[in-house]
């Protein structure tokens, strides 16, 4: 019974990771790639580590697994938000099939929107 459960859970996790990797290979632009990969990968790893926790079924190991899943769920959205914002500011193009872009024009002149930090860094250089 426990063995079957471990098999099913680890297979589901592996399939989610496979979907994330196929998604990162064949999605058309950077933003769709990012929005698929980070979350599908996180869910898959949650399933695999859950299988490990069931297999060992000890208090300390279950705590460790909970800690790993918690770290991943806290940190991966932060990383995704930072890299998405950076890529928009540095001017990575959206896919041609994009329906609407309401952020357009906000960063067309990057020097304006971030005046303070630009001037401060210029001062440092001078």
């Amino acid at each position: 019974m426990t063995d079957t459960f471990i098999m099913v859970l680890s297979t589901i996790g592996a399939v989610f990771i496979l979907i994330a990797s196929i998604g990162i290979l064949r999605m058309p632009d950077f933003y769709t790639r990012l929005s698929i990969t980070i979350k599908a990968g996180t869910l898959g790893i949650g399933c695999i580590l859950g299988a490990a926790a069931i297999h060992f079924s000890e208090f300390s190991i279950t705590t460790k697994v909970f800690a790993i899943i918690f770290f991943l769920f806290i940190t991966s959205p932060v990383a995704a938000f930072l890299i998405a914002r950076t890529s928009y500011v540095t001017g990575i193009k959206l896919w041609s099939g994009t329906v609407m872009d309401e952020l357009k024009g906000r960063y067309s002149t990057p020097k304006v929107s971030s005046k303070e930090s630009t001037t401060s860094s210029n001062k440092n250089i001078e």
């Binding site: 989610f16 979907i19 196929i22 998604g23 064949r26 999605m27 058309p28 632009d29 933003y31 769709t32 698929i36 979350k39 599908a40 869910l43 959206l94 896919w95 099939g97 994009t98 329906v99 609407m100 872009d101 309401e102 952020l103």
Partner: peptide
């Protein structure tokens, strides 16, 4: 997740992204 998974595995791309 399942919706995205189906879209990734099938050949045609049905995504209509936007901001």
């Amino acid at each position: 997740n399942l919706r995205v998974a189906i879209d990734v595995v099938t050949p045609n791309l049905h995504a209509t992204p936007g901001i």
